[in-house]
Deep mutational scan, measured.
Amino acid sequence: YKPCFVCQDKSSGYHYGVSACEGCKGFFRRSIQKNMIYTCHRDKNCVINKVTRNRCQYCRLQKCFEVGMSKESVRND
């Protein structure tokens, strides 16, 4: 598999339409299922990588959408 499109960590396969790691897969699923609203405490362009991905949930979710993750493919079960 290609590296995670969101944070470049080791991917566990294709999730919600893109190559993603377990961490970003779970983060995206929880964010969508719980209708989470995050805020960025900087200027909405935080670097998201394996080391920084937990620092800003707003920018991490934005990057999930930017790389093509589909909220329609998240099931509500």
Rank of each mutant, 00 (worst) to 15 (best):
Y1I: 10
Y1C: 11
K2R: 05
K2P: 07
K2Q: 12
K2S: 09
P3C: 08
P3N: 15
C4I: 00
C4A: 02
F5G: 08
V6L: 01
V6Q: 00
V6S: 00
V6I: 07
V6D: 01
V6Y: 00
V6P: 01
V6M: 02
C7M: 02
C7L: 01
C7H: 00
C7K: 01
C7T: 04
C7Y: 03
Q8A: 12
Q8N: 10
Q8E: 14
Q8S: 13
Q8H: 13
Q8K: 11
Q8T: 11
D9G: 03
D9V: 02
D9M: 04
D9L: 02
D9H: 03
D9A: 04
K10F: 12
K10G: 09
K10N: 14
S11M: 09
S11E: 09
S12M: 08
S12E: 10
S12C: 15
S12A: 13
G13E: 09
G13H: 05
Y14G: 06
Y14E: 10
H15P: 05
H15S: 11
H15E: 07
H15A: 12
Y16M: 07
Y16H: 12
Y16F: 12
G17A: 05
V18M: 06
S19N: 08
S19F: 08
A20G: 03
A20T: 09
A20Q: 04
A20N: 03
A20R: 01
A20S: 09
C21G: 02
C21R: 02
C21A: 01
E22S: 06
E22W: 04
G23P: 13
G23A: 11
G23T: 11
C24P: 00
C24M: 01
K25C: 11
G26I: 09
F27N: 00
F28G: 01
F28I: 04
F28H: 05
F28K: 00
R29Y: 05
R29D: 09
R29G: 09
R30E: 14
R30A: 00
R30Y: 00
S31H: 06
S31K: 01
S31I: 04
S31W: 08
S31E: 03
S31D: 01
S31F: 06
S31A: 08
I32M: 08
Q33V: 12
K34F: 11
K34H: 07
N35C: 12
M36D: 07
M36A: 14
M36C: 14
M36H: 10
I37D: 12
I37F: 06
I37V: 12
I37T: 08
I37G: 07
Y38D: 00
Y38E: 04
Y38N: 05
Y38C: 00
T39L: 13
C40T: 03
C40K: 01
H41F: 11
H41D: 12
H41V: 10
H41E: 14
R42C: 14
R42Y: 12
K44P: 03
K44S: 13
N45P: 10
N45V: 12
N45A: 13
C46V: 02
C46H: 04
C46F: 00
C46N: 02
V47S: 12
V47R: 09
V47Y: 14
V47F: 08
I48M: 12
I48W: 02
I48S: 04
N49A: 05
K50V: 15
V51F: 14
T52M: 11
T52E: 14
R53Y: 14
R53K: 13
N54C: 05
N54Y: 14
N54R: 12
N54E: 15
R55Q: 15
R55K: 15
R55V: 15
R55P: 15
R55M: 15
C56A: 00
Q57P: 14
Q57L: 14
Y58H: 08
R60Y: 11
L61T: 01
L61Q: 05
Q62P: 01
Q62S: 11
K63Y: 04
K63N: 03
C64V: 03
C64D: 00
F65N: 07
F65T: 10
F65M: 12
F65I: 14
F65R: 06
E66N: 10
E66P: 03
V67K: 11
M69A: 01
M69R: 02
M69P: 00
S70V: 12
S70W: 04
S70F: 08
S70R: 09
K71V: 07
K71P: 07
E72N: 12
E72F: 05
E72V: 07
E72C: 09
E72P: 08
E72S: 10
S73G: 11
S73R: 11
S73Y: 06
S73C: 07
S73M: 13
S73L: 13
V74G: 08
V74R: 06
R75Q: 15
R75P: 12
N76T: 07
D77K: 08
D77Q: 13
